[in-house]
Design a protein around this nucleic acid. Structure first.
Length: 811
RNA sequence: GCGAGAGUGGCGGAACUGGCAGACGCGCGAGACUUAGGAUCUCGUGGGUGACCGUGGGGGUUCAAGUCCCCCCUCUCGCACCA
């Protein structure tokens, strides 16, 4: 491929210039309007950047460069989510300390990012593994602990023998570990847990405050899973006590024909009769051995056993047999349900399997065929208490629910209740490469360390193997483990768990605001100036966990006055996945991975940036095409040749004379389109407009400087190296990053001629070229002449004229 | 099954509040310049080829539908016994 311009030389030149002149350093001048433009910071993996990373990074870089030229003070930082399992697994295998591999990987990432010309303020670089950073991660943990939002619990956790560690639910896919695909068993273990459920309502409500993709909002809503219903007390028939259940359908209480407890439910022993004991124990055991995967596989076939016990339905005093079944989950609601087979699919299936009665209480379906679950349709029937104190017959389910709930409440048999799918957040990992907890244990009690003792440094070791009993490798470090409680002076033992990877990424966006602050997490004045993040771009794989956890911490920080906004990320966009050239997901095994370094060697950083944006809409999943990179390279070369001759000097085609009106119109249309498209992140169409401009200019021999200079500025956010060079060739001082963004003149956009399509019966038959001042009558007369052939002399029934747009004859 | 999004040339994709379907790029074809071209430039390129058909399929609203309404099909992503 012949080179019109030497991308290599130009890119090296300008990257050095930017670095030397600290061109992208953020100012703390709060008089300027601010724009906080954030990428999801990466985990620095061993394989370096891939073209998918680049898509999001290029998008934020274009917006950042554009906003700077628009006069904004732009915060566009980058850092490293550098704690994580891969480096630790590598250390276990090779003995190389995770700090070493991590540092190397960060070097690679940073080198690649600089090569792409991303305009980060590197003076604000942070890493979650830096003690000066995790000191504040630990500090936030202390605040959570102080507020009762961090507690210790003996939780059955997902124990993965192969990884020698415990996994969170979200790290398990189809019953296997996300990393490595190993088997996972359940094992009770002492864990730190964060009470995210205390914030469930606010996490749900405040989704109204953000501009996020609808799918992400929906996923967060589902994850939180708020549902409103009632808790109802069922007295036990033969033993003292009550059984509390949660239902969203109290309107179907009269249709309950049996009860189900989760196998782990504490009342199981009490209600089980002697003759049922063997079966119940056997079922409980088999249920406890089932992994989540098995539970999913057996979804269709419901199993359970009768306990022999009965509970009394509070609405009609009817005794209901109590069963245990693993389709009822201990972790949700009260771990017990009333079963209404007529109006619940699961109960229906279970009732069919075990021959339990199905009683219709909402008319409108065919409950013999299938459960009738609609709450919008149907009428309540067979639902009056025997003592006549309540009836909901004839009502719609929606009306019956509050009525029966109120009645239960008046009798002390129940109350309105809200439940969430969201569980508290298991916040401890049995790993080395993570933040240590600022906690010591004295006599079995967890005590927080004072703030002044932070950070609790991760101790040095060369043995990264798990202790094997489920504790982290830190448990092997006796010297570190043994300490004294600074408050009481009592002998103490350090917490051996470390924090999960999510911890560091929960608040990093705050540290970028004030990365070197020694005394505060973030300076309040700076925080008020910069927050919230105006644009946050990252993968949709973080739609739930990272974004929910970060929102949770942010709200806690809001409550203690550290931050000033209820939500951290105002606008969120997910870049789509870049597929391989074969339309398949990029993977080493398929051999379709595109290495950005190789593409940059061949075509240069500007071409890669441009192609990443030209592929299609930012959020769409789309395939890579190296041919496409060639295409945008041709465009860049054409843009170059517009103003540079073969010797690399200003071309003679560049003239000082005034442009034609038509040329000015094209320029101003281009300014308008590029400006609006950057604002709405439609980079592909912005580039296409610049191509149109370039194609037109290529045709002319005399290219007015008045046209070229604004064009170079428009090109700058997309192809910054080339644009800087062109700006210099045009005789200007660098850097154009300090130039102001071109403004379009609305008067210059409007054309003096119009093309009016003429239709007959909605079909295009002619086009009229008229002046903007042409009247309807003039157009109609001209049009009649043009389409006479289709009018066939008949008078049109109707003539539709849309001002300056179109004329349609209806015959 | 539920939820969200999407189906437009050979390919990636354009098309604002209904108003010229296919911008721009890739690919392909023709030509120019050249010793040469896989460089560059110019022209052409939805399908048929007379006025017809074309935005996943079928209905509808409208002077006019890729765009709005109803039914159906397909794909992608997420959730998946949450009572």
């Amino acid at each position: 491929m012949s080179k019109t311009y030497d991308h290599q030389a130009i890119e090296v030149k300008w990257q050095a210039y930017w670095e030397q002149h600290r061109t992208f350093r953020v100012s703390d001048d709060q008089a300027l309007p601010k724009f906080y433009c954030l990428d999801m910071f990466p985990y620095p993996s061993g394989s370096g950047l891939h073209v998918g990373h680049l898509e999001g990074y290029t998008a934020t870089d274009i917006v950042s460069r554009y906003k700077r030229m628009k006069g904004f003070n732009v915060l566009h930082p980058m850092g490293w989510d550098a704690f994580g399992l891969p480096a630790e697994q590598y250390a276990v295998k090779t003995g190389v300390h995770p700090a070493i591999t991590t540092a190397q990987n960060i070097e690679t990432f940073k080198r690649q990012m600089k090569r792409v010309g991303l305009s980060y303020d590197w003076e604000r670089e942070i890493g979650t593994i830096d003690p000066e950073y995790y000191r504040w991660t630990q500090w936030i943990f202390l605040k959570l602990f102080e507020r009762g939002l961090a507690y210790v619990a003996e939780v059955p956790v997902n124990w993965c023998p192969a990884l020698g560690t415990v996994l969170a639910n979200e790290e398990i896919i189809d019953g296997k570990s996300e990393v490595g695909g190993f088997d996972v068993l359940r094992k009770p273990m002492r864990q730190w847990v964060l009470k995210i459920t205390a914030y469930a309502d606010r996490l749900l409500e405040d989704l109204k405050l953000v501009e996020w993709p609808p799918s992400t909002l929906e996923m967060q809503k589902n994850w939180i899973g708020r549902s409103i219903g009632a808790e109802v007390e069922f007295a036990l028939a033969d033993v003292p006590g009550t059984l509390r259940i949660f239902t969203t359908r109290p309107d179907t209480l009269f249709g309950a024909t049996y009860m189900v407890l989760a196998p782990e439910h504490p009342l199981v022993e009490a209600v089980t009769t002697a003759d049922r004991k063997t079966d119940v124990i056997a079922y409980r055991e088999s249920a406890s051995r089932k992994s989540d995967l098995q539970r999913q596989e057996l979804e269709k076939e419901k199993t359970g056993v009768f306990t022999g016990g009965y509970a009394v339905n509070p609405v009609n005093d009817e005794p209901l047999p109590i069963w245990i079944a693993d389709y009822v989950l201990m972790g949700y609601g009260t771990g017990a349900i009333m079963a209404v087979p007529a109006h619940d699919e699961r109960d229906w299936a279970f009732a069919k399997t075990y021959g339990l009665p199905i009683r219709e209480v909402i008319a409108g379906g065919q409950v013999g065929q299938e459960a009738f679950v609609s709450t919008d349709k149907g009428t309540v029937v067979n639902s009056s208490s025997p003592d006549g104190s309540v009836t909901i017959n004839g009502m719609t389910p929606a009306d019956a629910i509050p009525k029966i709930t109120a009645w239960l409440e008046s009798r002390g048999k129940g109350r309105k209740a809200v439940n969430y799918k969201l569980r508290d957040w298991l916040f401890a990992r049995q790993r080395y490469w993570g933040e240590p907890f600022p906690i010591v244990w004295v006599d079995g009690q967890a005590l927080p360390l004072p703030e002044e003792q932070l950070p609790v440094l991760l101790p040095e070791t060369s043995n990264f193997k798990p202790s094997g009993n489920g504790e982290s490798p830190l448990a092997n470090l006796t010297d570190w483990l043994t300490t004294t409680d600074p408050i009481s002076g009592m002998p103490a033992s350090r917490e051996t768990n470390t924090m999960p990877q999510w911890a560091g990424s929960c608040w990093y966006y705050l540290r970028f605001i004030d990365p070197k602050n020694q005394s505060l997490l973030v300076d309040p004045a700076k925080e008020r100036y910069w927050m919230p993040v105006d644009l946050y771009i990252g993968g949709s794989e973080h739609a739930v966990l990272h974004l929910l956890y970060a929102r949770f911490w942010h709200k806690v920080l809001y409550d203690i006055g550290v931050v000033s906004t209820p939500e951290p990320f105002k606008k969120l966009v997910h870049q789509g996945i870049v597929l391989g050239e074969d339309n398949q997901k990029m993977s080493k095994s398929r051999g379709n991975v595109v290495n950005p370094d190789e593409i940059m060697d061949q075509f240069g950083a500007d071409a890669v940036r441009l192609y990443e944006m030209f592929m299609g809409p930012l959020e769409a999943v789309k395939p890579w095409s190296t041919r496409g990179v060639e295409g945008v390279t041709r465009f860049l070369e054409r843009a170059w040749r517009l103003m540079v001759n073969e010797e690399g000097r200003l071309s003679h085609a560049v003239v000082e004379t005034a442009p034609t009106l038509k040329q000015q119109r094209l320029l101003h249309q281009t300014i308008k389109k590029v400006t609006e498209d950057i604002e709405t992140l439609r980079f592909n169409t912005a580039i296409s407009q610049m191509m149109v401009f370039t194609n037109e200019m290529t045709k002319t021999e005399q290219r007015s400087r008045v046209l070229l200079e604004p064009f170079v500025l428009l090109l700058a956010p997309f192809a910054p190296h080339l644009a800087e060079e062109l700006w210099e060739v045009l005789g200007h001082q660098p850097s154009l990053s300090q130039q102001t963004w071109p403004i379009f003149d609305p008067a210059l956009i409007i054309s003096d001629r119009l093309t009016i399509p003429i239709q007959v019966n909605g079909k295009l038959r002619a086009k009229l070229d008229v002046g903007t001042d042409a009247t309807r009558e003039q157009i109609e007369e001209l049009a009649r002449g043009q389409v006479a052939e289709w009018l066939q002399g008949k008078a049109p029934k109707k003539i539709v004229y849309v001002e300056k747009k179109l004329m349609n004859f209806v015959v």
